[in-house]
Simulated scan of single mutants.
Amino acid sequence: MNPPLILVADAQQDMRQQLCKSLEENGFRALAAATAGDIWSALDSVAVSALVLDASLRGPDGMDLCRSVRERSSVPIIMVSHNSSEVDRVVGLELGADDYMAKPYSARELAARLRAVMRRGRNERALGLRRQTQARFAGWAVDFARREVVAPDTSQVQLTAAEFSLLAILIDHAQTVIARTRLMEMAGVREAPSSDRSIDVLISRLRRKLGQGGHAAPIVTVRGAGYMLSAAVDRR
């Protein structure tokens, strides 16, 4: 089996070359991309396992590209940027990134985070294959084998791998509060300090998507305890 192919999109040529070399030394294959066109060409022609996307990429910028890629693909995305402010991290995650790293960073840490986001996707796919079932709650229908989520009005809602995995966990523990730290662990979110907002952003994204069309998302926050799917679940 070939090693995972990582698409490296960085504004600086020397950084692209260095990062590709480091990833190959850590057991990956790497493909460099200098422009948005390079990214689309790669995604359309080869099986990319994950995308490392520089937020400072130009024409369009990395943030806009993150949103566009997420609308077309569920490929895991790690955003990288010189700006490490909480606002930028949250914006990157809101746009669909699976993780966010501030430059400079070590190749070893990037490799670990890449394995984590890809493992999350594999776990989610294995989850669907293992269950081969449907779940219904509050008018919603989830088909785990097909990875389909259907709203009460029969419209289909598109979820990323991370969002679908999170929803599956909440369904598995319906009407039970899951502690925030435990939910981070179960969802495959990297180990992080308690101030990390990755899981909160994922919850927010999931709520927003399930709330499209005026449908109430039955995901509640229990202050000081965690999150819970408040609806009863019927398995079929």
Rank of each mutant, 00 (worst) to 15 (best):
S84N: 13
Q134A: 05
D234C: 06
S198I: 05
A34G: 14
R115N: 06
S230F: 03
R136M: 12
M228S: 14
R131M: 04
D200E: 13
A135S: 15
I78K: 01
I171E: 01
S195C: 12
G139Q: 02
A225P: 00
L129W: 03
R236W: 05
A126H: 10
P60L: 06
R131S: 02
Q13S: 07
T181V: 12
G59S: 14
D64F: 11
W140N: 00
N83I: 12
S195I: 06
S165C: 13
D196Y: 09
E148T: 05
A174Y: 09
N2P: 13
R119V: 01
A126L: 11
Q158P: 10
L5C: 12
G224P: 01
S230K: 09
D64L: 14
S204F: 11
D14R: 14
L170K: 07
R235H: 10
S198T: 15
V90I: 15
R136G: 13
S73N: 15
Q132A: 12
R147W: 03
E124F: 05
A116C: 10
L183K: 07
A138D: 08
V90E: 06
L170C: 14
S68D: 15
A174K: 02
V222F: 02
G121M: 03
L183Y: 04
D54T: 09
D200Y: 02
H215G: 09
I77A: 07
S194P: 12
G213L: 05
T160D: 12
Q158Y: 08
A135D: 04
D196I: 04
Q17W: 03
E163P: 08
A225G: 03
R89D: 00
M228E: 10
A116G: 01
A232S: 15
A162W: 00
Q18D: 07
A111C: 06
H215N: 08
S204L: 09
V75L: 08
E109T: 14
S165K: 15
T154F: 09
R108S: 11
G224H: 05
A97G: 05
A42R: 15
S195H: 13
L229F: 03
D61L: 08
K21V: 09
F164N: 00
A50H: 01
L93M: 07
A145R: 08
A179M: 04
A179K: 10
V80H: 03
V8H: 02
L206Q: 03
L7V: 08
P60D: 12
Q132R: 14
V80W: 01
P3M: 08
L159I: 06
D143V: 00
N2E: 11
V177M: 04
A112T: 14
L170E: 05
L43Y: 10
R115T: 02
P104F: 08
S81D: 10
R223G: 06
R205A: 11
G128N: 04
D38M: 07
R16N: 06
L229V: 04
D64Y: 05
R136I: 04
C20T: 12
T181I: 09
L51I: 13
V48L: 10
A47P: 14
L129G: 01
I199G: 00
K21W: 13
